[in-house]
């Protein structure tokens, strides 16, 4: 029952026209919600969460840094999945999604790098350290840039989308190896505080605002992707009947 509903959704959202109407319904309440959640998480984390006994107030940058870093990773995985879907089913929407995800993902990777550098100065005593996680985030940023450069270089949008899909699929496999190779190479970064399974080593007063701002960033990501996908769809389908019916 659930499975058949999911597959029906999947096929329906694969149609540009249906996707456009779906985004029409979702976006008007999704973007205010995304802003509200992000603002809640950030204000709570930056102003009301307790001070860290060791790092003082400088730790508060994690309320931006961690959501940005996890969003950047998640975005790249999403591009890889879209790449796989496109390789198997040649779905137009998957190409549009890759093109829509890349810029915001790259932005998040850049934010993670910059906030990491700002936090590194008071804590490690330097803006840039060749630490494993910083370095793999830098490489993730490069991978995003590569996908965007490839999309820009190929004039035919369908071909560009498929090429970017294959590249991000290869990149996803590679990003795992990059992560482990770089960790083996040199690590200074603290271990993971958030755990999906088991108890997180963070008090709930800090964890709650962090999770809220993560959710907020994910929602903002979704809003950005929907908006970009809409614009891309209008351009790609400009000659089709359903776009002409819009005005």
């Amino acid at each position: 029952m659930i499975w058949s509903t999911l597959t029906r959704w999947y096929h329906q959202l694969g149609s540009p026209r249906y996707f456009y109407r779906f985004s029409d319904v979702v976006l008007p309440w999704l973007w205010p919600l995304a802003l509200l959640v992000t603002a809640t998480g950030l204000i709570w984390g930056l102003a009301f969460a307790p001070e860290d006994y060791q790092q003082g107030n400088s730790y508060r940058i994690i309320f931006i840094h961690v959501p940005a870093a996890s969003g950047a990773l998640l975005g790249y995985v999403a591009m890889g999945v879209a790449g796989l879907v496109n390789l198997v089913w040649r779905m137009k929407m998957a190409e549009v999604m890759i093109k829509a995800i890349a810029p915001f993902g790259a932005l998040l990777a850049a934010i993670a790098l910059i906030t990491g550098a700002i936090w590194g100065k008071p804590t490690w005593g330097t803006y840039w350290e060749w630490d494993a996680r910083l370095t793999s985030m830098l490489i993730l940023f490069f991978l995003y840039l590569g996908v965007m450069a490839l999309i820009n270089a190929i004039p035919d949008p369908r071909q560009a989308g498929r090429a970017a899909g294959l590249l991000s699929l290869v990149g996803v496999i590679n990003v795992v190896i990059v992560k482990y190779s770089v960790e083996w190479w040199h690590s200074l970064h603290q271990g993971s505080t958030l755990k999906l399974v088991g108890k997180s080593s963070m008090p709930p007063e800090m964890l709650t605002p962090l999770l809220i701002s993560m959710l907020g960033i994910y929602l903002l990501f979704a809003v950005s992707v929907l908006w970009r996908a809409r614009a891309e769809l209008l351009w790609r389908e400009r000659k089709s009947a359903w776009v002409k019916e819009l005005h």
Partner: peptide, 23 residues
């Protein structure tokens, strides 16, 4: 393979491939 039909393949190729060479 992805850049074979493009005019300015060389520099683009290095942008795509160099991050993959890290491991």
């Amino acid at each position: 393979a992805l850049t074979v039909s493009l005019r300015s393949g060389g520099i683009l190729l290095s942008l795509l491939v160099l991050p993959l060479y890290v491991p």
